[in-house]
Design a protein around this nucleic acid. Structure first.
Lengths: 110, 110
DNA sequence: ATTTATACCTAAGAATCTTAGGTATCATGA
DNA sequence: TCATGATACCTAAGATTCTTAGGTATAAAT
């Protein structure tokens, strides 16, 4: 289910989803991640909301709160700064994945 | 260099290297990881040694200390329990990598 | 003779998560 | 109707895993 490997990748996941969906609210993110990973990755709200608030505080995300009947949703979207950071995070992820590939599936030269 | 993505993968890396090299000592692990990842991943000793001690305490690793001249090295090797855990860790890594693939490089159906 | 590499270690603090709550609305089935 | 589950937000305490910054000591290199 949720191994400790996910530690550290939450911000990248959030940024990625927001770069493709323009606007999403927290609960929606948890559901989409669960769906996309076929139930493997279930983001807990205790991890998600602080992460969203942190990204907003860093200026990577904007929010707009909207009423849905008597309820509300807080929609998040990428700022320009967030777009820039996206490239950094993707590059880091690519390097990480490549390094893990080199370590775990090394090309046997012998 | 060292992004936070590496968090959580250290144990898996150690187990993998020990499953291929029979015996390794701490410093050797840091050097091999650095070499294999082309300098990308530099394991700090402050992370490595506590991790080795923890794996030993869990019964996944055995140690044998050997004198090399006036110095010593502490060699680590996988126990049978470590061999079993290896499969678990590899499976978790496979699931994690697959989930990240699904999230970050989704197949466009549209 | 001093610096760099080898080789082990620990402790304090930071970062990121899990767990376990809390509040409230809305829909559904017994 | 009314209890449960889904939706939707949130926080705080504690756990885990790392970084940073030390410490000790031998061997090699400059």
């Amino acid at each position: 289910m949720n191994s400790k490997l996910y530690r550290g990748s939450l911000e990248t996941i959030i940024i990625k989803l927001l770069s493709e969906n323009k606007e999403m609210y927290g609960y929606e993110i948890t559901q989409l991640v669960k769906e996309m990973t076929l139930g493997e990755l279930q983001i807990t709200e205790g991890a998600l909301y602080p992460a969203l608030h942190k990204l907003e505080a860093k200026g990577l995300l904007d929010t707009s709160t909207r009423s849905i009947g008597n309820r509300y949703r807080k929609y998040y979207s990428l700022t320009k700064k967030g777009e820039k950071e996206k490239r950094v995070l993707f590059e880091e992820m690519a390097i990480y994945l490549n390094s893990m590939q080199l370590l775990l599936n090394p090309i046997k030269v012998k």
